[in-house]
């Protein structure tokens, strides 16, 4: 079982990102995903979290994830000792950032920081504004490729169904992030 914790801000579509991944995993036929939101007070801009458990076997545990295998940050400013809490040693941390990994590593010593240029990708596809980019679908693409959760087609189908507007732009952002991560992983291998 793979356990991922997402950190984002109210209005960024953090919970929707976890839901999209659940749908993409189901469509891929590779197993199942249980997506659980952490609901605090529902305010725009306030830190929010969501959890995803992915497994080939039925998922029984319905609690928060305290010791995640991986973390995903939709907003890099949320990276702190508190939000890193419980991440397994050496665990990957997918961060919405354009800074080089080497520079980000100092902010999360002992973990593997993987920057994803989700804000730039979102803006290229006119998703949101400079002040408030809609990065959730790009981050979904990156997560799906990084953990080999599903193929591109099930991911894009899940994105198109889940987003309320700009279906093709969101699908294109997810595709771009998916392909960038896949290429980077191939180059490393």
């Amino acid at each position: 079982m793979l356990e991922i914790r997402f950190h984002g801000r109210g209005g960024q579509g953090t919970v929707l990102a976890a839901k999209i991944l659940a749908d993409a995993v189901l469509r891929s036929g590779k197993g199942q995903c249980l997506a659980i939101p952490e609901f605090g007070v529902e305010r725009r801009g306030a830190p929010v979290a969501a959890y995803a458990r992915i497994s080939e076997r039925p998922i029984l545990v319905r609690t928060r994830i305290y010791e995640p295998d991986a973390l995903v940050f939709l907003d890099a400013a949320l990276l702190s000792a508190q939000t890193l809490g419980g991440l397994k040693p050496g665990g990957p941390l997918l961060l919405n950032s354009e800074s080089p990994a080497a520079r980000l590593a100092a902010r999360a010593p002992g973990f593997r920081v993987e920057p994803i240029a989700a804000t730039r990708i979102a803006l290229e596809h006119r998703l949101g504004s400079q002040a408030s980019p809609v990065v959730n679908t790009a981050m979904c693409g990156a997560v799906a490729a990084y953990f080999d959760l599903c193929g591109l087609e099930p991911l894009l189908a899940a994105v198109r169904e889940a987003v309320p507007v700009k279906h093709e732009e969101n699908a294109a952002a997810a595709r771009q992030a998916f392909e960038i991560v896949q290429e980077a992983l191939h180059a490393r291998a």
Partner: peptide, 12 residues
């Protein structure tokens, strides 16, 4: 059924 734990969680 449980608020949030089931009401707001997504699964197949």
């Amino acid at each position: 059924y449980d608020g949030f734990t089931l009401s707001h969680s997504y699964e197949p």
